[in-house]
Each structure stands twice: as C-alpha cells, then as structure tokens.
Design a protein around this nucleic acid. Structure first.
Length: 358
DNA sequence: TACTCGTGGAG
DNA sequence: TCTCCAAGAGT
C-alpha cells in the first residue's frame, strides 16, 4: 500500500543523506561560485524550464555584459533580447529587465529578502522566490520544480498529476517539511541536482542514489511508472514560408507585431503561415509586393508546444524596392536582430550567415 | 484551472 | 524522424 505520509520519513536522515551526497557530487557551476544576489537571480531566470548545459554560455555572456542591477535596468530591451537570443521564452528576458528596474525603483537597489516582497518582482513565481531566498540569503524557503516533483513522486510514490491541484500542494508541503533549516540553499540545490543528474525521467541511476533506501518506487521496482504525467496533446503541423530578400548587400528583416501568436516583437526574415507552403508564400508576395522562387533554399523544423512548424526559406527574384514600413528594416548584419527559428544555434541562421550575410 | 510560451538534447 | 520534457510564470 502506497504511503504518502511525510511523517513516515525522518527529515534528518533525508537532509543528511542529500547534503552529504551533494557535497561530494555536485556539479561545478558558475552560479555556485558567487553570493551576489543579482548573479543568482539571473541564473534562476535563465534556468526556468531550461537545462543547465544550455544556460551556461548565456549566463557567462550576460553577466559580463550586464554585471549588475543598474546596468541591466538601463540597458535597451533590444540589447537584453539579443543576449537572450536562442534561449527561448523571451518574456523572461523582458521580465528580467523589468525586475532590475523594480529593484532600483521600488527596493532601493537591493533585491528584497522576504517572500511577500520578492513575489512582487516581475517574472518571480513560487519556485524562483524560494530558490533565490534560500540560495542567496539562506532563508528557509522550499522549492518545487520538475526535478523535485520527479524525485518526490518516486521516493514517496505520489500518484496522479503533480504539476497542478492537490498533487502540487502535496509536493510543496513535503518540500517544506523536509527542508534543512540550517542549509536551505544547499538542500534545495541538492534535491534538484539529484533529479537532474541521477533521478532521470528515463533510466534513473538508482544504484548511485543517496535516497535509495528511502525510495518506495525503487523498492517496488516501479521507477519507470513514476512520475505519472498527464497525457500530451497532439501536435498540429504548421507550414510557414519566409523570404530572403537581398538588396545591395543588405537583407530585409521584419519585426513581428503583437498580433502574432509567438515571438511577438522579435526580428525575423519576413514570414507567414498558411495551410500550405504555397499559400503562405502567396501571402508574403502580396504583402511585400515581390516575387519569390518556388524552390526553397532551406527548411527548418521547429516545435513550439503542440505546434510542429516547418519553415521554408525562399529567395526573391530581382531587385526589390526599398521600403520603409515601420516593422521592416534593411540590415547588413544580423548582429542587432533576433530571428525566430534561426537562433544562435539554428541551422537557418548558420546557413544565412555563411551564404548570404557575410 | 489549463493553456501558452522556445529551444535543444536524449532515447 | 519522432516524442518527451527541462532549476516555471503569466494569464
């Protein structure tokens, strides 16, 4: 019979096992070498729904360029977005800048160290608040993220969807009851580290786990059955066409308006959706008054939530006229632009940089 | 509450 | 090639 009663676990044993393991096996990460609340705050914003390995280069570059609250608060949004290019969830970048402005304007230049105040900051929710307070200020607040949910679901055999409703509440109360009051920051990081490096979604490395003796799923051989994730929505395919329009060594880019469903306010090669590529292409030709080749230069596949996007890039015939429309711009380099589906690591961007914009 | 927002890595 | 999902927040 599954027990989900936190009182069946000795918090002291849990803390000792976890902290000892963390001390020995934790990864060497840059934000573990600083006590600066700003740097820790930046790392937490970047780490939302994003793996450590992906964040690393962004974190280093971001702090070098914008080392403190003041420089971030005063930076242009374009600059912050450029530093975020390719990291995804761009609202985080805008919120981070707004957070810096709030810290300066509302909190005297110092990140607040209490739960109620830090939650007022844009982009800070329950997880980030607990993480920053415990790691930067050693305040005894728990965290619950995807890693913690996975570890708890296995150790305590928690059934059902833990990402919302009563299951989520249960996870938070467990995290609170188990938290090490002396070392909350290390405890929280240890729990997440365990999920990230041992308690994998697939093929968890149970023999390396400090909680093995406490893990109900492992004892029953049910690791693969937990966590119990809600079934995923079917993905819809969206054909998209984009145009590569060159003139005198420059390329036409477009700022996506607020009406777009994704990547609002981001720069791209002019693009459109359609039921078919041909339809998308005709829309573009009409709105920009140009003629495009029917053979694409390149195709990129991309997935945004339950949308499967296929973006084809078509070259434009002849020499198009210059245009001045507000959301269009000729650029000679992509250094100042953000290109959807063509992020820093994207194939399309690499292709364009090599073939077209040198 | 449930949906939306990006991208890359792993199996 | 396809599916899953990650140091979540905003609405």
């Amino acid at each position: 019979m599954p027990t989900d009663n936190p009182r069946s676990v000795d918090p002291r044993f849990f803390q000792d096992a976890l902290l000892k393991w963390f001390g020995r096996y934790k990864r060497d990460l840059p934000w573990r070498h600083t006590r600066d609340p700003y740097a820790i705050f930046v790392s937490e914003m970047m780490l939302q729904q994003t793996q450590v390995k992906t964040v690393l280069p962004y974190y280093q570059r971001f702090l070098k360029e914008l080392p403190d609250w003041k420089s971030l608060a005063k930076a242009k949004e374009e600059k912050v977005l450029k530093l975020w290019e390719g990291l995804g969830y761009y609202r985080r970048a805008r919120n981070l800048r707004a957070a810096a402005q709030a810290v300066l304007k509302d909190f005297g230049g110092k990140l607040p160290d209490t739960m109620d105040l830090i939650l007022e900051i844009p982009g800070v929710g329950p997880y980030s608040a607990g993480a920053v307070l415990s790691i930067a200020y050693q305040k005894p607040h728990p965290v619950v993220d995807g890693n913690v949910l996975r570890v708890f679901s296995r150790v305590f055999l928690l059934e059902g969807n833990l990402k919302a409703g009563p299951g989520h509440q249960k996870a938070w109360s467990l995290a609170e009851s188990l938290l090490s009051p002396k070392r909350p920051g290390d405890f929280n990081q240890a729990l997440m580290e365990l999920g990230a490096t041992v308690c994998f979604p697939e093929n968890p490395q149970c023999l390396l786990c400090p909680l093995l003796s406490q893990c109900q799923a492992a004892q029953k051989g049910l690791q693969a059955e937990f966590p119990q994730m809600p079934k995923t929505v079917e993905t819809v395919e969206i054909p998209m066409a984009a145009l590569l329009i060159e003139r005198k060594g420059k390329v036409l880019v477009r700022k996506r308006p607020q009406e777009e469903r994704w990547l609002k306010g981001m720069w791209e090669f002019p693009s459109a959706e359609g039921k078919t590529f041909e339809e998308a292409l005709r829309k573009l030709e009409k709105s920009l008054k140009v003629r495009a080749q029917r053979k694409e230069l390149h195709e990129v596949r991309h997935q945004i939530t339950h949308h499967k996007i296929r973006l084809r890039l078509f070259p434009v015939f002849g020499l198009p006229k210059p245009r001045k429309a507000g959301n269009l711009k000729w650029v000679s380099s992509l250094k100042l632009t953000l290109l959807p589906f063509a992020s820093a690591k994207g194939k399309l961007r690499k292709w364009v940089l090599r073939k077209s914009v040198s």
